[in-house]
Amino acid sequence: MIKHATTHNNRVGYVTRLSAFAVAILMMIAAPIAYTDKAFADQYDNQLSALRAQADQYQAQANELRAKADTLQNKLDEITAQKSAIEARISISQTRHDQLVQEIAQNEKKMGQAQDVLGDTLASLYVDGKISSLELLASSHNVGDFIDKQEYRSSVRDELKKSIDTIKALKKKLDADRKDLEKVLADLATQNAQLAATQAEQARLVEQTRGEEAAYQQLVNSTRSQMAEVTSQQQAYYQSLVSKGGGGNSGVIGSFSYSNLSPSNGAGGCSGGYPYCQAQDTMVDPWNLYNRECVSYVAWALEKRFNKKVNPFRGDGNATDWPVSAVTWSGAMRVYSPQRGDVVVLPASGSFAPIGHVMIVESVSGNTMFVSQYNFYGTGQYSTMNVQNSGVVLLRFQNR
């Protein structure tokens, strides 16, 4: 049995991406896999593609709601700060109002005392006022004493009048200040009440938006769980095909042939130095490709191991796109004599349709290339094998 797998590009933002697990339909040498096998493979790919697009859509909605909620929260924080400032002004104004009330009370008490003194004095002056000037003169020891008594009576009247006028003026001013402050307090209370209503509404919007975001995030998680289940079914399907072929560590497909696949099931774990070892297709690498796919591994190896220039792809990172997209974005060249660090592309032809497969050349011996790769057999794992320089496209990337 001949078995092979292909890997696809998973560029950020594209909800119509092809299968997460780029595995081509396995073929038998003596007896090709029946059409029903291919139908099953397409079914898995289609399910994963639809689920991935749905998850991306839900995630985009969740991200949009998160941004909206953050904006609403910032506005809520501003409203809360304004309300706190007004409450501080109310506290200061209320303290001043209470002080004015105390001062007014004290002033009224002073005015009452002054009025009592004035009453007593006026009564005394009234009695003195019945004494004629001649009698006052007669009762005086001398003319100077008479003049002193006259001036005393006048000065007492003037001082009392002045004191009362001062107290009345102060009372008038304190009353005016109290009324002004009460108006300020009323205005501040109104503003505070309005801000409290706005704050409550803003908090409701934040809570509502956060809830909607959480709901979409739950949909994302649910969809990813479905993807994991479909992936598990797909892996079981491919392993069943491997079992049919009795190992599947070599094969011929058209003019392309491979041998010495190690491990023979293509499941060498997340090794080879590749760093993006999270669950397959759960993150995007620096080249806009999903992790643990053949294209992601080769892009990483080119840049980090072989010091080649690899620019991010732009929605055209499927293996079959590389003969054009790698030339366009990274200046790669097509070559015909392989060397270490070149890329081997299996084009989308025959059973490798629709998305192809890429590998990287580790060494060359005659017409045989020893390559490393990810996701052969759709495992999302590392493996190595020998391939012949036939039925493939070779790309050479520029040094950095």
Rank of each mutant, 00 (worst) to 15 (best):
I355R: 08
W287N: 04
V393D: 14
A353T: 01
D158A: 08
A50I: 10
C294E: 01
A236N: 03
N288I: 04
V393P: 02
T368R: 11
A279N: 15
A215D: 03
D177K: 05
L185V: 00
S133E: 08
Q226V: 09
Q102D: 14
S262H: 05
V361K: 12
K309M: 09
Q202M: 11
G391V: 05
L26A: 14
S255V: 09
Q280E: 07
S257Q: 09
D145K: 13
Y258K: 02
E293F: 13
T231Q: 05
Q280N: 07
I86Y: 08
A214T: 06
L205D: 01
G144D: 09
V364S: 04
D148M: 00
Q59E: 14
N107C: 15
Q99W: 00
F256C: 05
L26F: 15
V364D: 10
F370L: 15
D342E: 01
F313L: 02
N63W: 13
V392A: 07
E78C: 01
D120P: 02
Y274P: 04
Y382G: 04
S363N: 14
G269W: 15
D42T: 10
Q94S: 09
V15A: 14
M28Y: 13
S139D: 01
A114S: 05
L160D: 12
N291W: 06
I86W: 06
I86A: 12
F370R: 07
V343S: 00
A81F: 15
G119H: 06
V364E: 11
S139I: 12
A69V: 06
